[in-house]
């Protein structure tokens, strides 16, 4: 395939085009990806997650700038939310990556999550493959950041940086968000705000009691706008990657995560299928009606509906 050749020769426009084909779910796109597979896997995949306004994009801008000074070939995937009301999206992360945008060889792709759960888009994993085949050896993936649990971001990256700000709220919020358990590195950004070192202590305490792996999760103060703490973050990200490789964890974790991601996608597929095929059928609608009229109880209705879709179970 011509597009595959071009990507392997480093043609950005072709890589960008293929990403679009994956976003549109085109078979030719999947076919191209399968041809690229032998050339994938070579990059250090770093995910960045955190609440809206925590400064993820600015952090990525600085990370990319500094990584590129170390000779890294960088790809950035910035995922923005799709409006549930209008189905449209304003892809604004890129604007916060002005410095990175002007460095030759840094490829930035914005992507709307299009309702996909878990903080990433359906096309994210495909895009990772494409950028690796394009020759990128460091990927920075910014999750949607809509404040909910962003489980899937951890399945597409090797190192996950979770970003907080000193005003992250009390400890309960923290555990509820469940974000801390996901991170390999924690950055307390906007560390010029009051309470930064307290937050650092709090989170350190929480992390140490909950961590049962051989990797000590570092908690780092950063001030992305000024570039403070970026070098430390890079150092930690690199030593985390080294840790994975030295302990033969990289491939093991990648395949475990891939399985998780696959199951999550599968769930979406099954759901989509059920909604398209079944939810409009009359026997299905009858069940709804019966519940409404109190002719059957709710639990029985669920079980009957389930039997309709999966008669064998």
């Amino acid at each position: 395939m011509e597009i595959v050749e071009k990507i392997l020769n480093g043609n950005e426009a072709s890589a960008a085009k293929l990403i679009s084909l994956i976003e549109e779910g085109k078979d030719e796109g999947y076919k191209a990806i399968s041809l690229l597979l032998p050339y994938t896997g070579g990059a250090h995949r770093i995910g960045i997650t955190g609440a809206p306004g925590s400064g993820k994009s600015t952090l990525i801008d600085k990370l990319a700038t500094n990584f590129s000074k170390r000779g890294k070939k960088i790809g950035i995937i910035a995922i923005d939310p799709t409006s549930t009301k209008t189905d449209g999206a304003l892809l604004g992360d890129r604007l916060r990556m002005r410095d990175a945008e002007n460095i030759e060889g840094i490829f930035i792709r914005s992507m709307a999550h299009r309702g996909y759960p878990g903080g990433i888009a359906k096309a994210t994993i495909g895009t990772i493959y494409i950028l690796e085949a394009l020759g990128k050896d460091l990927l920075l993936i910014e999750s949607v950041g809509i404040g909910q649990t962003e489980i899937n971001i951890s399945t597409v990256c090797d190192t996950l940086i979770t970003v907080f700000t000193p005003d992250y709220g009390d400890e309960i919020q923290l555990m509820k968000a469940g974000m801390i358990e996901l991170g390999d590195i924690i950055a307390i950004n906007k560390s010029d705000m009051p309470g930064a070192s307290n937050a650092q202590q709090d989170i350190k305490g929480h992390v140490n009691t909950n961590n049962n792996t051989t990797w000590d999760i570092p908690v780092i103060l950063t001030q992305a706008q000024k570039g403070d703490g970026i070098e430390m973050l890079i150092e930690k990200a690199e030593s985390h990657f080294k840790h994975l490789k030295e302990n033969n964890l990289l491939e093991k974790l990648r395949s475990e995560k891939l399985k998780k991601l696959m199951l999550s996608f599968l769930k979406e597929e099954i759901w989509a299928h059920a909604m398209n095929k079944w939810a409009k059928k009359s026997e299905f609608l009858n069940i709804f009606e019966m519940v409404a009229k109190k002719e059957i109880d709710f639990y029985k209705a669920v079980s009957e509906a389930s039997n309709l879709i999966f008669p064998d179970c």
Binding site: S57, G92, D93, L95, R96, R98, Q225
Partner: peptide, 17 residues
């Protein structure tokens, strides 16, 4: 202006959305 640009850097336009 270049003297200032080199010392001060440039304003980073905040993203709107």
């Amino acid at each position: 202006t270049d003297v200032f640009r080199q010392i001060f850097g440039e304003f980073k336009e905040p993203s709107l959305f």
